[in-house]
Structures are given as structure tokens and as C-alpha cells.
Design a protein around this nucleic acid. Structure first.
Lengths: 126, 126
DNA sequence: ATTTAAAATGAGAATTATTATCAAGTTGAG
DNA sequence: CTCAACTTGATAATAATTCTCATTTTAAAT
């Protein structure tokens, strides 16, 4: 993977974000400062960075993928009202992979847990 | 929700399937026996049945949703090679919701765990 | 510094999954 | 039997993402 200014911008912008943005959200954030980054480049770089293990693509948050600069083992909560994504520590499900492997007999290479509900702020407004 | 012949076919076909098909897969299965069921009707019925809690829409299995006639609490494993989806018992992650609620302070209404890897059959072929 | 092949880019077309539209047919309570 | 609410098929529309391709950039070797 060669260096590119655009990739640096994508990574830098994602790192400044705690809300686990979608590609589209990231695109509009990037646009304000660097209008010379195309959508194709953004998607390409997000894929590449995820493939290289530098960032993580969070699936299960339909209708679009979210991206996380934190690659340490952890899970996610998405607010069904505001759409913000929050981290959940991985110690809520100790040994899930080991247990699931034992149960199924399959080798597990990857897993994700997604919780849904209302975040603190959105519960206030109810 | 009124009765409809098409909805009965969709539900019946899904119930006969253990591989948790996507809408598209279900469509081709249904087509062979009931060519008079349109794709729009299939999607509509899957949504309605899921909203009514009669079936479950499994998210997190990009690029398309899979559907499950089993609405009891359980998780899923998807084979990265053949794409088949298998059930994983929910006792691999006891009290995850309770623990996640305690950790985050949010109220959780829904959650899913998706494991990825190679299933038994696909491991043989390696 | 110059060459050069591989990698990356921008713009937009293409693809895929899904939802929306709407006129026509079906269902079921009264 | 009637009528309003529900459902359907065909197809258009949308949204997210990937692909295409001509042009530009990178970096390793001269």
C-alpha cells in the first residue's frame, strides 16, 4: 500500500470521530476541509484500511456500514433514534468465541455483537 | 393483517428452510413452484411478517438480509465460503443484555451476534 | 534527477438490495 | 352483497457501494 494524501485525510478524519461514522457521514465531514477527495476514493480507502486491519468496518448497522478507528476487541450499541454508535466493552461476553466454537464445531475467525435501543440523550426526549 | 395466498406461500417456504435464506434465494425457491408471486410481494411480506414477530430478519449478514422462521432467542454463524447460515444457541452468551445495559446505562431492546468462519463442509475442501 | 511500473485518483456509470408507486384485484366485517 | 381496507404485480425509484478507465502520483531503480 503506497502513501497517498487522500488516505491520510480519511484516516485522520476517522480518528477524530467517536461516533463511528458511515462512509456518507465521513464524506461530508471530509468535504468541508478537503473538497478534493472523491467518494470513490473514500470508499476505496475505507476498504483498504479495513483489509489491512488499520480500521474496522462495523457491519450489522443497516442500511450502511459504519467505520471504527478502534481495532481492539469490543462491541457496539446503536441508538434507534439518533443513529449514533457507542462502544460496548468486550467483557460483557467473555469467551463467546470459544463457547461458540465448542457448540458448533466450526472455526470462528470473526464476530460482532450489535445492541439496539435508545441512548441516554434520546431517552430524555421521550 | 388480512389473509393472502402469497403470504402463506412465503411463510410456508421459509419454514421448510434451515439455511436462513436471503430474499433473493427465497424468491428463486418460490418461483419454481409459484411463479405468480412477485418480488415486491415477497419483500413486502417478509417485512410484514418480521414486524409482526412471526419471522425474524437477520441483519449483519451483508450484503443482504437473511430470514429466519425461528423466532426464539439465538445467534448466527455465517460461512464465509458457502454463505450458509447456522444457528448458535443463546447460552453461549448468558446475560449479555443485562451486562451491556449495566455497562452502558442504556435500555437495550434488541441485539444480534454474528460469527464468521468456515463451516464443517467447507473446511474439508481446504 | 530520470525513468518506469505499480498504485491511486476523480468522475461518473453500473450494480445490488430494497422500497415506493399505483392501478387493479382480494378480503372480510356488517 | 357492499364497501373500505388490504394486497398484489409490474415497474420505477432510491440508496449504498463497486466498477471502469483515462489521468496522475508514488517510489524504487537507474
Amino acid at each position: 500500500m503506497n502513501y497517498s494524501r487522500q488516505r491520510e485525510v480519511v484516516l485522520k478524519t476517522l480518528k477524530q470521530n467517536v461516533i463511528h461514522p458511515t462512509a456518507e457521514t465521513l464524506y461530508s465531514i471530509i468535504q468541508t476541509e478537503y473538497p478534493n477527495v472523491s467518494k470513490a476514493t473514500l470508499y476505496r480507502n475505507l476498504s483498504q484500511l479495513a483489509d489491512a486491519g488499520i480500521i474496522k468496518k462495523i457491519e450489522g448497522l443497516e442500511p450502511s456500514a459504519h467505520f471504527d478507528h478502534n481495532t481492539h476487541s469490543h462491541y457496539h450499541f446503536i441508538c434507534t433514534k439518533c443513529g449514533k454508535v457507542f462502544d460496548v466493552s468486550d467483557n460483557i461476553a467473555k469467551d463467546v468465541v470459544k463457547k461458540a466454537e465448542k457448540e458448533t464445531g466450526f472455526r470462528i475467525t470473526n464476530h460482532e455483537i450489535v445492541f439496539q435501543g435508545l441512548c441516554k440523550d434520546c431517552r430524555k426526549g421521550e
